[in-house]
Design a protein around this nucleic acid. Structure first.
Lengths: 225, 225
DNA sequence: TTAATATGTTCACCAAATGTTCAAAATACT
DNA sequence: AGTATTTTGAACATTTGGTGAACATATTAA
């Protein structure tokens, strides 16, 4: 279930796509031209996929796509293009437009649904498991490494797990008990101070970002962004 | 990239097959029984390969296969059958059922992927990149061999499959469990350390490129480019 | 200011993960 | 059947990491 934008000047196509994707549980936003599409994208931070027809009045699909890729906040938004002819498809390939997928008209609604599912899956994985960037700090769960200014900082297994735990709980104060339970396991009977030792090492390896792990006196630690 | 139908009543198997083939860039359609499979085939003119489990509720794999061969439009569609037992395999042979390939359960996902690639190739579908070159390291899936400085390094079957799995997941940290599931098959319950032994041998045969298989401590391995 | 408490820091010992070797078991080949 | 090859995991070696005691420093309370 996601929020999806469909932009096409033909009502018939728009409805068709919207109806099918609604049936899959998605929330649909509709635009009848490029200008409208951009307006909706600006207003809705939560759009998770954009389906753009290439041929549209006001602003065509390529212009909207370019806009999406240029804006910081939407640069990584998955985009699917609808093209009417093979020539346009060539354009897509040739210009390396930055679209994530394309479907040629006429299309089968079910194939479109399948591809949408695919894109959302891919994007979902990217959001959850791909690199989380905090300035020059990359937490890359795909490669299973953390980079500072592009360089792997060589975390040990425990340090890495600790980092992931902080990443998943940024801004939340975590007691030593909670940290031990989460990272070491609920049946671990170790000294609470072991946490401190690992925090120390992690902070050192994070360099300038070490201070992002703040001490919450009398309680534990908190990772700030 | 092709549109592929997978029909199996076991969700686990369906997901496994779909996930692996999606990673190869294919669009997957899923059916949980024979009736559903036929419905999807009727609706989609663009299906390029059907993978059918023999044992399914509503209509079994053989019935679906017969249907496919009877319809003018789908008569030449490549079909791969999944069979659970040797007896079913006999049926396939004996009845000259018209399937293009068959795979017995349990199967290794990688073997399945390779066979799918084969079938699509045979069917004249586009498929690029069967030879991957990393510097002086050639991974040649056509000749089914890996060369270092032009010389075949004589990988054993398991080593070769491991190599292919790494090639398909370069830059991604792979846990021993994942590797075991992918290369040995989803129902293999062997020692995780067996992976290490094979890594060791593969590294040795890869010579100077052995270090491209990096150890991810506390997790598994990662193939670098 | 001093005592009490909490956290930072260091380090040596122990534990765990991985590398490596090998021979038995399984498999493929003839 | 017999032989060759491959696979496997146990056993041992080596490397790396985890741990908590001990001491240092910082913060708070009295």
């Amino acid at each position: 279930m996601a929020v999806i934008l469909i932009a096409d000047d033909e009502v018939r196509i728009r409805r068709l796509v919207a109806d099918f994707l609604k049936r899959d549980g998605h929330t649909m936003l509709e635009a009848s031209n490029g200008e409208e599409a951009i307006k909706l994208i600006e207003q809705h931070g939560e759009i998770e996929l954009a389906i753009l027809d290439v041929m549209m009045p006001e602003k065509d699909g390529f212009s909207v796509l370019r806009y999406i890729r240029e804006q910081e906040v939407t640069a990584r938004l998955p985009v699917m293009m609808l093209t009417a002819r093979a020539e346009e498809l060539d354009q897509l390939h040739g210009l390396q437009s930055g679209a994530d997928d394309y479907v040629t008209k006429p299309f089968s609604p079910l194939v479109l649904c399948a591809r949408v599912k695919n894109l959302l899956l891919r994007a979902g994985k990217n959001d959850d498991a791909n690199a989380h960037k905090f300035g020059e700090l990359d937490i890359d769960e795909i490669r299973h490494e953390v980079r500072l200014n592009g360089e792997d900082i060589g975390l040990t297994p425990k340090e890495y797990e600790l980092m992931i735990y902080f990443k998943n709980n940024k801004g939340i104060a975590l007691s030593r008990e909670k940290i031990l339970n989460a990272v070491w396991g609920y049946d671990y009977f170790g000294d609470l101070r072991t946490v401190d030792t690992h925090i120390k090492k992690l902070r050192a390896k994070l360099g300038e970002y070490g201070s992002k792990i703040e001490t919450v006196r009398g309680y534990g630690y908190r990772f700030e962004v």
